[in-house]
Amino acid sequence: MRVAIVKYNAGNTVSVSNALQRLGVEPVVTDLPDELQAADKVIFPGVGEASTAMAYLRERGLDKVITSLTQPVLGICLGMQLMCSYSEENETECLGILPYRVRRFESDKLKVPHTGWNRISDLRSQLFEGVAEGAYVYFVHGYYVENGAVTTAATEYGIEFSAGVDSGNFHAIQFHPEKSGEVGSRILENFLKI
């Protein structure tokens, strides 16, 4: 199986590669359109800031490449947020694959970024097969995707938001499966089986 990880200026590609290698898959980390299009699965990771990341993707034409992919795609953390239509982080127009706005956590009481292990519930995606309701996964993010019709997992931190969203061949999760212990490995394994 050919698994490609999108290489850009906000990807935590090392951790994702390590996690896939533990599952016996040797991914290719690439920003070449041909390699991304030819892969059986594409992972769009991300840690960083939305506007810088989008500018980088547009400069290299990767925005069009990602939106036109037809194989299973997994967006992780910032990758998920960039798949949405718009992010409040520096007022950024994003890829528009998912019909959501990305909002900033606004709270006097809660610490931001939302950092640590939190529970996911209302699980409804192939990604979560074999994952228990209320399982803990690792989050670190200051912006969130609101809950909506295509939400596949919900999490609560002050408010309830989308920990997972599916739309056709695009799957997105806000937490880091590559850093979420055995539960995270299971989710990545499930993605590879889609």
Partner: peptide
């Protein structure tokens, strides 16, 4: 170490 662990 990073290759061995699946936590932050």
């Amino acid at each position: 170490v990073a290759a061995e662990i699946n936590i932050p």
